[in-house]
Design a binder for these strands. Structure first.
Lengths: 112, 112
DNA sequence: GCACTGTATCACGATATGGTAGTATAGTCA
DNA sequence: TGACTATACTACCATATCGTGATACAGTGC
């Protein structure tokens, strides 16, 4: 049962930093934005339409995603094109997704 | 740049569920508890000592972790032994950890 | 310069959540 | 049964964060 000790114990500070990253992913609006950027860059107006979020809201969440380096932006004239700067983030989401999928399908099997 | 579309677009409900899972991991206290359980079950009193959290606090967070099925418990006499019921969770944490580690070491390299 | 568009920011109310202290409950032992 | 221990639960306050509406700012074209 016990796992091998791959990693030395994380300090409180380390835990805090990790927790902070997870927190960024703990908001549906931000996940939605990441999904919308999954296949390439988008400018803000497009993101507003893709996500059904308000302009201020999109801007705020993009700011948060940029703060932690998950996305970055490229300005061009009036437009700001956002893109995922850390593709590994998508792997994390993917992993969580498949976990949930597996769980739910397992649970639902109990009723079939 | 663009990723292959491995997964069909997640519904709002799906996003909400994924976000909720990430939220559970977005709290240092809960990460600390998961770490403390990484190598095997522990009873609550041991967890209190391992984590330096108060009893009520430990109990509350363990409840949250149990609600989403990340840990489970086995009662034995007066003691409650908690254990990780979904080891994949540790992989997720591990992944986030190494990401951070890589990021920071990359950033710090700019000053060497 | 002026009007317009796209984006960022600010202020604010509402809600959610963490920590704590206190209390309740259940198992144990004399 | 009664005292004791281990754990769970409740009520509360403090803080953080979301969404929104209003406003500011920057780039473009006339």
């Amino acid at each position: 049962m016990a796992r091998p000790a791959k990693r030395k114990k994380l300090s409180d500070r380390g835990l805090q930093l990790v927790a902070r990253r997870f927190k960024v992913l703990s908001e549906p609006a931000r996940l939605k934005l990441l999904m919308a950027l999954e296949h390439g860059e988008q400018h803000v107006t497009a993101l507003i339409e893709l996500t059904d979020l308000t302009q201020g809201n999109v801007s705020k969440h993009l700011g948060i995603l940029m703060d932690v380096g998950m996305v970055d932006r490229r300005k061009q004239g009036l437009n700001a094109f956002y893109f995922i700067s850390d593709p590994q983030i998508l792997d994390l989401c993917e992993l969580m997704c498949s976990k949930l999928e597996a769980e739910f399908s397992k649970d639902s099997a109990h009723f079939r």
